[in-house]
Design a protein around this nucleic acid. Sequence first.
DNA 1: TATGAATGAGGATTCATTCAT
DNA 2: GATGAATGAATCCTCATTCAT
Lengths: 219, 219, 219, 219
Amino acid sequence: MRATRPPVDKSERRGDLLRAARRVFATQGYHEAKVDDIAAQAGVAKGTFYLYFKDKRSVFVELLGALFERITKAILRVDVAQDVPEQVKHNIRAILAVLLDEPETTRLLLTHAAGMDKDFTENLRAFDQGVRQLLTESLTDGQALGIVAPGDPSLYAIFAIGALKEVLLTSATSATSVDREAIVKALYALLEHGFLRAAPEEIERKPPSRSTVLRSKKP
Amino acid sequence: MRATRPPVDKSERRGDLLRAARRVFATQGYHEAKVDDIAAQAGVAKGTFYLYFKDKRSVFVELLGALFERITKAILRVDVAQDVPEQVKHNIRAILAVLLDEPETTRLLLTHAAGMDKDFTENLRAFDQGVRQLLTESLTDGQALGIVAPGDPSLYAIFAIGALKEVLLTSATSATSVDREAIVKALYALLEHGFLRAAPEEIERKPPSRSTVLRSKKP
Amino acid sequence: MRATRPPVDKSERRGDLLRAARRVFATQGYHEAKVDDIAAQAGVAKGTFYLYFKDKRSVFVELLGALFERITKAILRVDVAQDVPEQVKHNIRAILAVLLDEPETTRLLLTHAAGMDKDFTENLRAFDQGVRQLLTESLTDGQALGIVAPGDPSLYAIFAIGALKEVLLTSATSATSVDREAIVKALYALLEHGFLRAAPEEIERKPPSRSTVLRSKKP
Amino acid sequence: MRATRPPVDKSERRGDLLRAARRVFATQGYHEAKVDDIAAQAGVAKGTFYLYFKDKRSVFVELLGALFERITKAILRVDVAQDVPEQVKHNIRAILAVLLDEPETTRLLLTHAAGMDKDFTENLRAFDQGVRQLLTESLTDGQALGIVAPGDPSLYAIFAIGALKEVLLTSATSATSVDREAIVKALYALLEHGFLRAAPEEIERKPPSRSTVLRSKKP
DNA sequence: TATGAATGAGGATTCATTCAT
DNA sequence: GATGAATGAATCCTCATTCAT
């Protein structure tokens, strides 16, 4: 009846539970994850869970909150006075670093966060909003400087974010590991030139070479 | 025990319930949606729901199944022998038509489908897979013809899908209505040229011709 | 949400619930018995029931399974080389001991088991079959030795079982306690001589032997 | 929407439903039988059921009530001044006739009636009581005349009834048809002489014929 | 009469949370 | 702190019964 596992260094407990929760949530999703499962995964009794967390929801929120923070920190506001391409790539790289290192949390964010809760969905939207906002502003700055094409900058932000999300989702979801730098390059290339080269009239106008030039990834 | 409401108009019921379910699921998410809510929304008693659907899950599945089908039908495989840009735009337009007309179902798909069920998540992945596959193949064809940039075509597919998903999510999520044709153009422009013009020096260095011309499409 | 009742004495709970279920099932029958009733009878909350049993059906099955086992153990295969009458009486006595000590379980078996379930009915039939089979075999052995009258031994088995069942049912059903030894004797007497002495003239008319004649079915 | 099957002779309906109910109840048991099943089996709509019967329970009660009546009518009180064996056999025969002709109703009575209802169980007990009573009285009369062995006559009644019930149950339950007259003879023989011939000492004492001797045990 | 769509009471089951030890 | 037995609110689903047509 008493078990009281040797005080594993005390404050380890909370981390154990957090990690356990992350794994269980990522595997089963929020609703199929039972507090029992989390406790079992952490190797403690169910009651212990409640010594460290107010309730099931709050662990989930905490896990994603921490992720939000890390992502937020990882993103540097692009200074248009500096080397923009490098900053953009840096941001992509940084976000990938945060999220690909924690495929479980990524799964939480990208596949299980939405199905959670009305309240939390609001949270999530707020975060998304924030990121989009930030990016939109940078793009607007960029347009002023002519380094971003004219057009709706928030649409551009959405596209960029969507593209990034989808690779992350795919990576976090599939078992295969990925070549991060390849993603960085490919995504940056997309932002800079797209990947469609279909412009017949122009192709006709500019006879031989050029498409090569066009494709010449990123000078 | 009572038999109240006269059969309204007969086969309306099923449609009513389907619509009610769509709304409730979209609003509350699968788990917060109670069968009672759906019935109430449809203006019938709880038991009536079960006259038309096996269980709560099956309505959800049916709603998304129908959506999958409509999306699948909407997408035309790009024939690289034809006018590619137009076909690409057509596909974007078609998908937008299906999903922007039903923001609720779109919300189901993009925010609530994942939180459902392990089984259903599998379904969902299969659908995603299918779409990605199709697009990847088209892109591969395109590469052979030089109208798609070299590089990992499945990465391109992922980017394109992600960008599209994100606009859809944003649109379906925000109250504001959107200018579809603007989205079509902007997305197509992204695919064709990206939006970063990050190397002014180079642009200057490479005077009049191509890239400028090419890019000048939109303004 | 509350955690009330201190674990009493620990593993008592299961037994409490089992007993409670037995009583409630015996009183109300399987279908009229609500899980709430069982929990209430055991003095615990409904949820507690499910800590110890998978579902309502499984308690019922467990109760009867245990009974089947006890009955099966109680019955000794008659060794025709030994004192047969004593063995027969022993078996009667043993079965009575098992079943009269638990009138509630007996009621479960004899009046509520059949109304349960198609599946369970099958179970029940199998048990009946087994007992009948065993008895039939013994009787067949007995016939070879001339200590069982000629005739269909399975019919004899059925009669004996039926007679025993009916006393048990009557006893378990009526409030009055019974004199077990009286039952043993009376039942044994039935098996040995019947109770009808209906043909005085014939007995007189047909002097010594020919009881064969007497037996000659239907005078 | 209208179907109104051609008025199959009107009063047929009730009989159809009764027969349908009998079959369904016999097959599935009272609780697994759905009113829908009965209506379907009778080839009418569910609502029609309620035009002829107050509720589900009442059909069941009616079916068994009719059976009770037929059984009651079939049993003739034994007149000890007449040919007793023949009367006994007649009763056995009559009961078999009623019940073996309707194996379904027999199944209702013997396997599904008990699991029904508290109220109905009372009903059933009353009927059983009545039959037992009647038989007990006859046996008591018989004892006065010396044609029934001494001993508790109600116990004898119980045995006889139990033996009969069990054959009926077995017959109604197994697919194989049975030789009624064989049952009559065997049961009567049981009542008259039992089937055990196990009396070793006596066997030694009465060399040749023995079985007669054996049988002479009680009188 | 016959129909069958609609109703909603009723009950089994789950699981987050509490709290006596 | 740790434990895990106990709790009961919350929901899904079934199906006998009703009644507008």
